[in-house]
Design a protein around this nucleic acid. Sequence first.
DNA 1: AGCACTTCCGAAACCGGTTTCGGCAAGGGG
DNA 2: CCCCTTGCCGAAACCGGTTTCGGAAGTGCT
Lengths: 376, 376
Amino acid sequence: MQTAAAAMGAQGRRRVTIADVAERLGVTKSTVSRALNGYPDIAEGTRIRIARTAERMGYRPLTHAQAIRTGRTRSLGLVLQIDGEDSARPFLAEFIAGLTQAASDENWTVTIAAEPTEPKVRAALSRLVEERKADGFILPRTLTHDGRVETLRAENVPFVMFGRTANPEGCAWYDIRGEDAMRAATTRLAALGHKRIAHLPGGSQYYYSQLRLVGYKQGLEAAGLPFDPSLVGLEAMTRREGAEATRQLLRVPEPPTAIVCAVDRAALGVYKAAKEARLEIGRELSLIAYDGVPEGAYANPGLTTFAVNSHQAGERLARLLIARIRGTAAEELRELAPATLVERGSDRPPALSSSELAQHITDLNPIETVQREDHK
Amino acid sequence: MQTAAAAMGAQGRRRVTIADVAERLGVTKSTVSRALNGYPDIAEGTRIRIARTAERMGYRPLTHAQAIRTGRTRSLGLVLQIDGEDSARPFLAEFIAGLTQAASDENWTVTIAAEPTEPKVRAALSRLVEERKADGFILPRTLTHDGRVETLRAENVPFVMFGRTANPEGCAWYDIRGEDAMRAATTRLAALGHKRIAHLPGGSQYYYSQLRLVGYKQGLEAAGLPFDPSLVGLEAMTRREGAEATRQLLRVPEPPTAIVCAVDRAALGVYKAAKEARLEIGRELSLIAYDGVPEGAYANPGLTTFAVNSHQAGERLARLLIARIRGTAAEELRELAPATLVERGSDRPPALSSSELAQHITDLNPIETVQREDHK
DNA sequence: AGCACTTCCGAAACCGGTTTCGGCAAGGGG
DNA sequence: CCCCTTGCCGAAACCGGTTTCGGAAGTGCT
């Protein structure tokens, strides 16, 4: 139904095509094409001459026309899983900015899609490949065992992950050294005088949670503190879960005076639980987390955290993926970057020792109250 | 340099092409093409036969191959302006989800780009058109006078705006009735007993700010309250600006007992200023805002606000743009939707009258303190 | 001088579609 | 019965590139 073509995208004069360039120089299209694409059977002088006139005439090959023969589109694919529940993604804008700017530097574009469930995400990946809409993919939020990786490996499609994974075979990635951040957070709290430092891990489906737990343990070891499994709380990815995990940690005989959270949003829940228990963050309970969400700055006191540079992540991932598509081996395309400490007010020397804190908590919170909080 | 094609996207068997379908039926490619594209010179029976076999064979035309002749890509363009400063976009994920899901329903895709400044955004729009990467654009964050519109109008490229604009000629849009929300907010506060209701407008570069101001005035009128220009505060788009505007409003002889904010983030600044002035939100100062940012739920008390459904906005905009590209007149593609009231705790009957509040403020805050706050 | 190799480029096919053009057959009117 | 439409489809050109193939000129070697 190509009839109602009222809105024709016709903007003035015609594009300059490869035929125009060829004619101008008295050579054939094929010579121009091979010259511009670096084929070895074109004389150096000819190549330069062609490159110059093409440049001067403003010739830019039409990606679609190339794609029909080469199969390549110069397009990076990004498929998001957005399920409405947990769709607060403060970093998405910066991430996309980094991605698209790096892509456009190399004259690539980014095709984006979103689906609510994992099977649909996989289907979308396949569809984009099948329709040649993307030459490769960036996979955000890598899981320990990631179905998307299987899909793409099976179809032999290039990809790079934001985050490492359990089975690294054939995988390229960019990741932040979350384990180093957790390690530094722990030693920092120890240096402030904390003896009982807890950890709130992230969801176990994410590989980074394992890494961050390891970093926490390394930090304890470096500080000469023993590892106590009872100080590893429930998995907490949300404010609600963070609050619940904290309530549980504060109920034990020797409660922690500091908590290292795998993610900022869980840390926001620590604030909530602390408020319920009438504890002041930065005095009775210290806190360091990871991510750098903007809400952390609004918390009271501000949340000390290790921030990740999402813009840079997007930028690097775009470059890695382009290299991957061009044929570089996955094993050579693995990059790690550090998180940056943002010091705010949530980490201070402990005002109370662990046992004093325990006493303080039971003084302030009769058993009944605590239990009622627990069930709400 | 097409050499290192190690990562060829070759997935098994070849696609089924239009030639395959034609051969299968003993007709020519051209017949298949015209049948599938609804040309009138194909017999109905033939059309059905072709459609069925194409379907059965799993034939899907390759968009790029079509594009080279038709110039159309079946791709929607979205160019974001992301400048790093104000890049917190809590709705972006939902918006993109709506957009891409609607697009993919109609077998279109979304190409996304981001640039830090307005001129670069305009350049990106032109580039995407020039390279035929997008058939039309969605323009988020419409300004009163929008350079993007001029660029696209000049090049005769279809577009739809998220938000209305001053000069509607040739513009299609989807927008939320922010004016109705502001009107409802104002009458609601009046019904709770507030007599002095202030308004914090958004940035004047945004057309919606004008509309919301009008809605506020309509609300006053409907409630039988006089409009007092001194109750319209400074433009506030951020928490910081919202706080500053509030300080200023609270300093007058007859301060407002309630504030209607054009945007949630300014409202978060009201909380801050209220805390400084030791006023309790929902008692001494009531508050209703607009947007529905997640932080509003975490504020204390929760922020009552008119929330916009970003997912739906994206979805509708995709459909409008596709219709626009297919030739529907811009004037027929204008859609408005209401915002939804989310009741939380920030709007209550006033605990104090305006004059009592004024007294209360001066009691609690010696002049010096206020001035110091002012300059920080 | 003769021959085999290179070097470099033109000719033409090709990719997977769309669109123009023209022709055949059936139908209608005089 | 003939001519003129009209309906329907095939043939071929076309879109803007890439890639294969082969041949003309130049080079090196004997």
